[in-house]
Simulated scan of single mutants.
Amino acid sequence: MTAGEPIRAIVADDQAVVRTGFVNLLSTQDDIDVVGEAEDGEQAVALALAHRPDVALLDIRMPELDGIQAARTILRETDGATKALMLTTFDLDQYVFDALAAGASGFLLKDATFPELLHAVRVVAAGDAMLAPGITRRLIAEFAPRRPVTAPKSLLDRLTAREVEVLLLIAQGLSNKDIAERLTITDHTVKTHINRLFTKLDLRDRAQAVIVAYEAGLVTPGEGG
């Protein structure tokens, strides 16, 4: 996305009312341009490859190809240029953790408010992960226990003690500002620690950092920030 240009987005949901609602709301904003809408995962992938949007809003549960598979394909085929923001009902979806592992940048509840919708799209388009404590952390806390621990704890040996602290706070859903206040350090120092631990662990974004923290047993599901 070039500075000054509107965020280009697609919306994929098999429920026409939900899909149309999101499209109409996003279309009211001067800085967001909805370039297509899809009713299943295959259509979403085709749209993403044709338009190369900045953000793809994908329902997790869709016919033909579910949102997780669609996200994985879109991220692979666009080399990560298109970010995936998953739409979820929280209490019904059982594959949230898999969606993060597939590379999704975060989650938006289908009953989200208009400001929450706009915030999520803008955050993800900017290259950050939508890891608000009230959304993604709760989702992961619910579904992470169903998965086996796969990342070795020795992975954390690559990090300094301070970097482990920062990773823990990221996994608890804290923002950079919250982390700075918690550790009594500057925002710039927080960003430096995050960049270093991302490099050491070969992570792309905060979503992947959360996965590593849970899979390595650094935090347990349900821990609060």
Results as ranks from 00 to 15, higher is better:
108 L>K: 08
106 G>N: 11
109 L>E: 08
85 L>G: 10
106 G>H: 09
79 D>K: 14
80 G>M: 06
96 V>Y: 01
98 D>M: 07
75 L>Q: 02
98 D>A: 14
107 F>G: 09
95 Y>M: 13
74 I>N: 00
77 E>F: 02
75 L>W: 00
110 K>V: 09
74 I>G: 04
90 F>W: 10
107 F>V: 03
105 S>F: 08
82 T>H: 04
104 A>H: 08
96 V>C: 12
84 A>G: 02
102 A>C: 08
102 A>H: 02
87 L>K: 04
105 S>I: 02
99 A>N: 08
84 A>N: 01
91 D>N: 14
104 A>N: 02
93 D>N: 13
74 I>Q: 00
88 T>S: 11
76 R>H: 14
77 E>W: 03
88 T>C: 07
82 T>L: 02
76 R>Q: 14
105 S>E: 12
90 F>E: 08
107 F>P: 08
86 M>A: 10
78 T>M: 05
80 G>Q: 05
81 A>L: 13
103 G>R: 07
82 T>F: 01
83 K>C: 07
87 L>P: 09
94 Q>V: 12
77 E>S: 06
93 D>C: 06
110 K>F: 10
90 F>H: 12
97 F>V: 15
78 T>H: 04
97 F>R: 09
101 A>I: 11
81 A>C: 06
91 D>V: 12
104 A>Y: 11
100 L>S: 02
84 A>H: 04
89 T>I: 13
78 T>Y: 09
90 F>G: 03
85 L>I: 03
82 T>G: 10
102 A>E: 06
76 R>K: 14
78 T>W: 11
79 D>W: 11
98 D>P: 08
106 G>Q: 09
84 A>S: 10
90 F>R: 09
97 F>S: 12
93 D>K: 05
110 K>Y: 10
73 T>Y: 08
98 D>W: 03
104 A>Q: 05
97 F>I: 14
87 L>Y: 02
82 T>R: 00
75 L>D: 00
81 A>M: 11
94 Q>M: 12
84 A>V: 04
73 T>E: 12
107 F>I: 01
87 L>W: 01
75 L>Y: 00
109 L>K: 07
105 S>G: 13
83 K>Q: 15
96 V>W: 00
81 A>Q: 15
85 L>V: 05
79 D>T: 07
76 R>N: 14
98 D>E: 15
83 K>N: 14
80 G>L: 05
87 L>Q: 05
75 L>S: 00
89 T>L: 13
95 Y>W: 05
94 Q>Y: 10
79 D>Q: 15
98 D>T: 02
110 K>R: 13
108 L>Y: 04
105 S>K: 08
106 G>K: 05
108 L>F: 06
91 D>P: 00
82 T>E: 02
80 G>R: 06
79 D>I: 03
83 K>T: 03
90 F>Q: 10
80 G>Y: 09
101 A>T: 12
73 T>P: 00
107 F>M: 04
85 L>C: 10
99 A>Y: 12
105 S>V: 03
99 A>W: 11
78 T>A: 00
104 A>R: 04
89 T>P: 01
96 V>P: 07
98 D>K: 09
92 L>W: 10
106 G>L: 07
107 F>Y: 11
109 L>M: 12
93 D>H: 10
87 L>R: 03
96 V>F: 03
77 E>M: 07
103 G>E: 05
79 D>M: 09
87 L>S: 05
110 K>L: 10
85 L>A: 09
106 G>C: 12
108 L>R: 06
